[in-house]
Computed example of a mutant assay.
Amino acid sequence: MDKKKLLVIGIIIYLASTAVAFGVSRIFAPKIDGDLVSPQSLITDSEGNVQIDPGEPKTESCPLNGMLFTKTERSIWEGRRPLAVMIENHTDARPQSGLGSADIVYEAVVEGGITRFMGVYYCGVAANNINFSPVRSARTYFLDWVSEYDALYAHVGGAGKCNDPTVDEKAKALCQIDRYGIKDMDQFGISYPTCFRNPDRLSKTVATEHTMVCSSNGLYFVAESRDWTNVDEDDVSWDEDFRSWEFSDGDKAQDTPDATKISFGFWDGYKDFNVIWDYDKADNSYKRTMGGEAHTDFETKKQITAKNVVVQLTKETGPVDEHKHLLYETIGTGDAFIFKNGEAIEGTWSKNKRTARTLFYDENGKEIQFVPGQIWIEVVPKGKKVDF
């Protein structure tokens, strides 16, 4: 066989394997209210994005953040479970890819005053194949939030295998992933093209640890191969014990907003991680600034916004070992500031066990009703000042 034929065969095999890996033609659609959206009727583009009829009404509420989507999108997400992805926040990693598409985002310090994000994806990525980057390693306190969703957990390694004597027992995230039975999507067990190093993502040279890219369709395809869809290998649905937050019926700004600029830091002296959320009354949303610059999503080139911002104050302990790992109190109660509709609510948070939902309450003990849309949970060491 000559070289030209071998080349053609090689290209065909590569294209076929890539299509399978990204699951372009594998969109599963359960029944919704008696209607069936056939998988064959869902048209995808070359990037794996489902083409949604622009005239289709958005009537379906996302159980994670209350935002409305189409029945077509719901038919896709109901065959899946939430996907939690660790995304780093080193200055060399900015701007990140994928944060703007998350339903919920958590932010907390890892080591050395550097924060890390965990995006929770479910409804917002149903019809879209999203790139996440840079994906980084697991930390123990994020596992307590992953457990609220029985989510797939995408990360690149993490702190502490069970037999690692250099890591504090309470900080051994990799050991706990196994012990808790978390649906582990560690990149070390996932190959190209689902996850890969892309040193050219940004127009600057960065260290290798800042280059990992993973795709949402690829991760969901891998999860399906492990029998982790909307149900697990034991046929238990992810939302069997899920407790959704409460959401308001509308999206209406206050006539006279009392919190138009929210600002706080995580550690003193680490200005690159100081955060400002500026309220935009016209859009009834908050625009994010970090380290003095507008925080944008690399994929969309748009400034990151949120409908709700929560500052959860909690006890920080550490460093607890030679790796300078930290611990955060995620189970218990504490103070919180909740910002929505241009108003500031001084309230509390409560979580009674690892798998339970973190709930937020106002000063009268009434559960918070979030505005439908993206929610950011900023986990800040208690004692830090929050200005608004």
Rank of each mutant, 00 (worst) to 15 (best):
K4A: 12
L7N: 10
I9V: 14
I11W: 03
I12W: 04
Y14M: 12
A16Q: 03
V20N: 11
V20C: 04
V24M: 09
A29Q: 06
K31T: 15
D33S: 13
L36E: 14
V37I: 15
E47N: 15
K58H: 05
K58E: 11
E60L: 00
C62V: 00
P63G: 04
N65V: 00
F69T: 01
T70S: 12
T72I: 06
R74M: 07
W77I: 02
G79S: 14
L83D: 06
H90F: 13
R94N: 07
Q96H: 09
S97G: 09
G113R: 07
I114T: 11
Y121K: 04
G124L: 01
V125M: 08
P134M: 04
V135S: 10
A151M: 07
L152M: 13
Y153A: 03
V156M: 12
E169K: 13
M185C: 03
I190E: 02
S191M: 04
S191I: 04
T205H: 05
E209V: 07
E209F: 12
C214A: 06
S216V: 07
Y220S: 05
Y220K: 05
N230T: 06
D241P: 03
F242H: 04
T256V: 09
A259K: 00
K261M: 06
W267C: 02
W267P: 00
D268T: 14
D272Q: 11
F273A: 11
W277E: 08
K281T: 09
Y286D: 09
Y286V: 08
K287I: 10
E299S: 14
E316L: 13
E316S: 07
E316M: 12
P319E: 09
H323C: 04
L327P: 04
E329L: 05
E329N: 05
T333L: 00
I338Y: 03
F339Y: 15
K340L: 13
N352C: 00
R354E: 02
R357W: 07
R357G: 12
G365M: 06
G365N: 09
K366S: 14
I368K: 10
V371T: 15
I377R: 02
K382A: 05
G383W: 04
K385D: 12
